[in-house]
Computed example of a mutant assay.
Amino acid sequence: MKNTLEGKVAVVTGGASGIGLAIAKTFTENGASVIITDLQQENLDKAVAVIGKDGIGIVANVSKLKDMEAVYQQVMAKFGKLDTVVANAGLGDHGPLGTITEEQYDRTFNTNVKGVLFTVQPAVPLMKPGGTIIIIGSTGSVNPPRGMSIYGGSKAAVRNFIRSWVQDTKGTGIRFNVLSPGAIDTESLRNALEKAHGRDQVEAGVKSMGADTPAGRIGTTDEIGQVALFLASEASSFITGVEIFADGGLTAI
């Protein structure tokens, strides 16, 4: 699928690390110019060094509409068009029922739900037929583990966004899809395992998480990047309004 995004312009939020960075790198490797957003310029600079000459980093908070409007203004000023948006920025703040605080709820929904809305809404008027919007969801939208109700709820909310948005934008030729990873081998996952169980138990923890899937392992960020590439390309031209689970078969059992 080389050069399937040749000449395209894409915005990837939360693109300085993990899945977002892998998607941005996959896009540039296949011909796109990519603008990534994140909260810290230092992290963006490091990510752009990885992405290469076709990457640009812009500091923005996805939960702030004015921030995202400013991002798109810069994109249009430089490139004159916008072909793909990946709403990847997100976070998890967990706790079982009875312990959830107002701060946890606000932080999660501001980023994972309001942030998706404010990433997508100002982008749509700038896009032409054939444009693609990909929202990064989670298996937590259908199967949240214990203690992850606010995270799972936030991901279920953006799935319902898509159900409505494909109707709101009927006739525009813009496609909307949700890409929901399962457990993915990222630095943040390994840091969480180290914090919970100690550094010497990280590899065992990664292996244990994968053992519950039909694939027998967790996924890689590059694998999620390839699914995003498919959804952003003409290869998926008749796919819209769906949630694709890239989870090693976890949600199938």
Rank of each mutant, 00 (worst) to 15 (best):
F230E: 12
G131Y: 04
H94Q: 08
L39R: 13
I100N: 03
V75E: 10
V120E: 02
D247S: 12
A215S: 15
G249D: 11
N3R: 12
V75F: 05
E42S: 15
S33N: 14
N3P: 02
D247C: 10
G153R: 10
V34S: 11
S33W: 11
G15R: 05
V12I: 12
R146H: 12
V86S: 05
I35L: 06
V227C: 10
E42L: 05
G55K: 08
D106F: 02
N191V: 01
A16D: 12
A157R: 10
E103G: 00
L65F: 04
S164Q: 12
A24Q: 09
E243D: 15
G137E: 11
D45I: 03
G57N: 07
G14F: 04
S141K: 07
P129K: 13
D67F: 00
Q201A: 14
S164T: 13
N143M: 15
V202R: 13
P144D: 09
R146A: 13
T4Q: 12
L126Y: 00
G31C: 06
Q40S: 03
Q201G: 00
L250K: 15
K128T: 08
A157P: 06
L231F: 11
G14K: 06
N30Y: 06
H197T: 03
T186D: 06
N30A: 09
S208I: 00
G57F: 02
S237T: 11
G241F: 04
I51K: 11
N88T: 03
P129V: 07
N43I: 00
P144I: 06
K170S: 10
T28P: 04
D222T: 13
V116T: 14
N177V: 05
A157H: 10
N3M: 14
L44F: 04
V178T: 15
G31M: 11
K2M: 10
G248F: 07
A16Q: 07
M1L: 12
V71L: 08
R217C: 05
G153H: 09
A157F: 06
L250W: 14
G173K: 03
A192V: 02
G248T: 08
A252M: 11
E243L: 02
A77K: 14
Q73K: 14
K46H: 08
L117Q: 13
I36H: 06
S236R: 10
Y72K: 04
T26N: 09
I150S: 09
A60W: 01
L91W: 01
G171V: 02
G225K: 09
